[in-house]
């Protein structure tokens, strides 16, 4: 089997081969979805190292249970569901839902101009700080909708529930994120007006 053959195969064909135990076919699926799964894990667990482990674990679990996948839904949504369950289990085990984590672990933009880079970094830091405060499920809905471009039906397949509930969760997540972004702005202003504050003030 040549590598080029695998490139041109559909997900369905690759899954069938993987179900017959062909590791290269499954690795082709990994190559296709590894960035999406890693990005999703980064958003949910907010830690790059842990997100890498979650992504690997998700793919491993998908491979172990690939024979139980009946292809009634898309492989991508099934894979997302596994990844999200892995992230949720990790968060439950860590018992740190929504607590601030080290946002510096997440890779930031590298731009030519130092000023632009600083502004971009600052924007991202505020965004990540606001995202960390969201419940894990709302982070998941936002990522799946905004970054992965899933429809509400697909989101409901990944997270469970109905498309209507997914729509409501997404709306709620956007509103909550907006509220936290606003409070991040206010916090920045407060810190800047009191330069003696050296440590990050906890908002919890």
């Amino acid at each position: 089997m040549k590598a080029g053959e695998l490139d041109s195969m559909t997900d369905s064909q690759l899954v069938t081969r993987a179900q017959n135990g062909e590791v290269p076919a499954f690795e082709e699926l990994v190559k296709k979805y590894q960035r999406d799964i890693y990005n999703l894990a980064c958003r949910i667990v907010a830690d790059a190292e842990e997100a890498r482990d979650m992504a690997q674990q998700a793919f491993l679990q998908a491979f172990i249970h690939i024979k139980s996948f009946r292809q009634q839904s898309q492989f991508k949504t099934w894979l997302f569901r596994i990844a999200i369950n892995q992230c949720y289990n990790f968060l439950k085990g860590r018992k740190k839902f929504g607590e601030p984590t080290e946002t510096e672990n997440l890779h930031l933009v590298e731009d030519d101009s130092p000023e632009t880079e600083m502004v971009a970094q600052d924007e991202r830091r505020r965004l990540y700080a606001a995202l960390e405060r969201l419940p894990a499920k709302q982070r998941a809905v936002l990522t799946l909708k905004v970054e992965q471009g899933l429809s509400y039906d697909e989101i409901s397949e990944v997270l469970g529930g109905t498309a209507g509930a997914a729509r409501v969760n997404y709306c709620q997540a956007l509103k909550t994120l907006r509220k936290y972004l606003k409070s991040e702005d206010e916090h920045e202003v407060a810190v800047q007006t009191t330069p003696t504050v050296a440590t990050r003030v906890s908002r919890r």
Partner: peptide
């Protein structure tokens, strides 16, 4: 408008490729 801005902020700040 506010919701549009938030969604746009999220879109322009994706997780960077490592």
């Amino acid at each position: 408008e506010a919701l549009k801005e938030v969604a746009a902020a999220l879109k322009v700040a994706p997780v960077e490729d490592p």
